[in-house]
Computed example of a mutant assay.
Amino acid sequence: MNAWMMLALAIVAEVIGTTALKASEGFTRLAPSLIVVVGYAVAFYCLSLVLKSIPVGVTYAIWSGLGIVLITVVAFLVYGQRIDLAGLIGMGLIIAGVVVLNVFSKTAVH
């Protein structure tokens, strides 16, 4: 599996772990708590493999930026949490930053 696919897997695992974190109710519910631990373990394992071939700054920018956007979408769908216009604009800027980093930066590995 290439580094970009591994990064995507790390992002998805982190979003799953974060979604379960809310459901764990402060780690008082066993099943969601186990999902949190497994989700984050998979995320960080995948992230450690990604760092062998993609610079840490680029990796972290993509992982955290896309994770923020995805967890916001999941929070809307699963928990009914709303986001206002400022939040949407902010997430648009995050996505734009990730695109700029990958398209224009000489740091990114393609």
Score class of each variant (00 low, 15 high):
Gly90Lys: 04
Glu25Arg: 14
Gly87Met: 08
Gly80Cys: 05
Ile89Asp: 01
Met6Cys: 13
Trp4Glu: 07
Ile68Leu: 12
Ala31Gly: 00
Ala31Met: 14
Val103Ser: 04
Met6Arg: 06
Tyr60Cys: 02
Ile68Gly: 05
Pro55Thr: 06
Gly92Thr: 07
Leu101Glu: 07
Leu93Pro: 04
Phe44Trp: 03
Val109Asp: 02
Gly97Gln: 04
Ser64Cys: 13
Tyr45Ala: 05
Val69Ile: 15
Leu9Gly: 05
Met5Val: 06
Thr18Arg: 02
Ala86Leu: 14
Gly65Ile: 06
Arg29Met: 12
Met1Gly: 09
Val12Glu: 03
Asn2Ser: 13
Ile11Pro: 06
Gly97Leu: 12
Gly97Pro: 05
Pro55Leu: 00
Ile71His: 04
Pro55Cys: 07
Gly17Glu: 02
Val58Met: 03
Leu49His: 11
Thr72Trp: 09
Leu101Ile: 12
Tyr79Leu: 11
Thr28Asp: 00
Ala20Cys: 10
Lys22Glu: 14
Val100Gln: 03
Asp84Cys: 05
Ala96Leu: 15
Val36Glu: 07
Leu30Asp: 00
Glu14Cys: 08
Ala10Ser: 10
Ile62Asn: 06
Gly97Lys: 05
Met5Gln: 11
Ala41Thr: 12
Val50Glu: 11
Val74Leu: 03
Ala20Arg: 04
Val98Phe: 02
His110Lys: 14
Gly26Trp: 10
Gly17Leu: 03
Gly87Gln: 08
Gly80Glu: 13
Phe104Ala: 10
Phe44Pro: 00
Gly87Val: 10
Val69Thr: 09
Thr59Ser: 15
